[in-house]
Amino acid sequence: MIDRLKKAPFIMVTAFSYFIIYFPIFVIVLLSVNASPSGQTFTEFSFVWYKEIFLNERLLTAIFNTLLVAVISTAVATVVGTLTAIGINSLTKTYRIRFMILNNVPVINPDIVTGLSLMLVFSLLPISFGMPTMLLAHIFFSIPFVVLTVLPKLKELDPNLMDAALDLGCNYFEGVVKVIIPSIKTAIIAGALIAFTMSIDDFVISYFTTGNGFQNVSIWIYSRLGRRTFSPAVYAYNTLVVFLTIGVLGYINVNNIIRVKRRSEK
């Protein structure tokens, strides 16, 4: 598409965007190995903040809470989202579109609107604010992403696939479990990955729906901004998360490239 245009300006703009996106992450990495607690200047190279992750009890609890909420909400959202997507896919087009409009409300809505909406609903329910409300909120905003990831894959499937399963003796439950779900496995994994990411990274919705001192990492950070209790150990934690992500995604990517290569050699 671009061959005859001059490539250079495109490469420059692209390089610039990667720079502006990655620059703060680079700074976080730098701050994580900087001995200075204020992070104002670089004093000395040190891994002290990495050790501090395991010593700062409040931070450790926040990390644990983040992971706990992420794991449970991802599991629930993946199951519910997948089954819902299968249901939506079998609706007529008009109803499917209407359903998707509703599904996309939490996706398009700014976090602050989702957050305050859920806060208002939860205030009417007989549950106390904290872990349960935050978990419900995370399930709420994760499901739409699973549906959005799984639905296009379902649409690609042969529309007779379920009928073929029934034809060969499956009942409806077996048809879904033995045929439909295995056929969309990759999309389900991708949806779960997105749900997990959204949960780990969320600040605004968690902030509006938590209570009684239940903190995830984001709330831990926000409540300590500009205070002495803010510990640069969180930079170290964040650096580990980013490198872990790069590792996992890199592994998937390299695997894909190898698979593509092997296929083309065959």
Binding site: L30, N34, D201, V242, I246
Partner: peptide
């Protein structure tokens, strides 16, 4: 990938850079 990095921390990173005395 940057989405995996906490947005608040990325904001703090910019904040620290925008002061005359910075890393």
């Amino acid at each position: 990938i940057p989405i995996w990095s906490n947005m608040l921390l990325r904001i703090i990173a910019w904040e620290k850079l925008f002061f005359p005395i910075s890393i």
